[in-house]
Simulated scan of single mutants.
Amino acid sequence: MMIVRGGFSIFTRTESFREFIRYYPIVSAIVAIHISLYLLTILPIFPNYWFFEHFSGVNLYIMEGEFWRLITPIFMHSGFSHMLFNSFSIVLFGPALERLLGGGRFLFIYLASGIIANVATFILEPLTYTHVGSSGAIFGLFGYYIAMIIFQKNRLSKENSQIIITLCVVSLIMTFIQPNINITAHLFGLLGGFFLGYVLKK
């Protein structure tokens, strides 16, 4: 078990680009997929809108059996700033968890949280609702951190726990202030990550 204690922030990145890829291969792969899919939606050599047509979360199509749309929206984004912000968030919050949990468990938490968020969106939002973005999965990481703070107090320092709680509260507030936000995905991604953190705490 890796214990992250001490007076330094676990969210401070000091690795070189090559070291980052070597230490955090799952986080690096997720960001690479974000960038690749974004480029496929803007470069004129591809049928750009095809990717949104087939990978976006569209509740009506999910109801008709296109269940891959519960997964693919996690990696799609609606524009450069959307992709950049979510990718930056994963680079900021993901590495510490990947080191704590290992690549396989980290990927499971990330994808499971995103899927929980998208299932909740499918159940609670109208059939016409369409969405993309990894925010539900990112909030799942927040939820997992909160579960660690509550149920595994020895794994994070007080300073790092305070940082996580503060950022989580600020992110939740912004969820209700910013326009065009999938509030359902944010809330249920957070709850899903917390639930997984409780179940997998041993």
Rank of each mutant, 00 (worst) to 15 (best):
L107E: 10
V132Q: 08
L97G: 08
L60M: 06
I74S: 01
W50N: 06
G65S: 12
F88M: 14
P73E: 05
V91D: 01
S113F: 09
P126L: 06
A117N: 06
E53C: 00
E98S: 08
F55V: 00
W50V: 06
A112L: 12
I123F: 11
A137K: 03
V27N: 12
M76L: 15
G114M: 09
Y23V: 08
Y49W: 02
P95Q: 11
R18K: 11
S56C: 08
N86E: 15
E98A: 06
I26L: 11
I45L: 15
R99H: 14
I42W: 09
P126K: 03
A32I: 12
H34P: 00
S134R: 02
P126Q: 05
L101K: 10
H131T: 13
S16N: 09
G103E: 13
M76D: 03
Y61A: 11
E66T: 05
I21D: 01
S87T: 08
S16V: 01
L100D: 02
Y23L: 14
T72H: 09
F108S: 14
F88D: 00
S135I: 12
F52A: 09
I26Y: 01
Y129K: 03
F93E: 02
G103D: 07
S78Q: 13
E19T: 09
V119K: 00
M76T: 02
A96T: 12
F106R: 11
A96S: 15
M76E: 07
I42G: 04
I71G: 02
H131P: 00
S81A: 14
V132M: 10
A137L: 11
G104Q: 12
T130W: 08
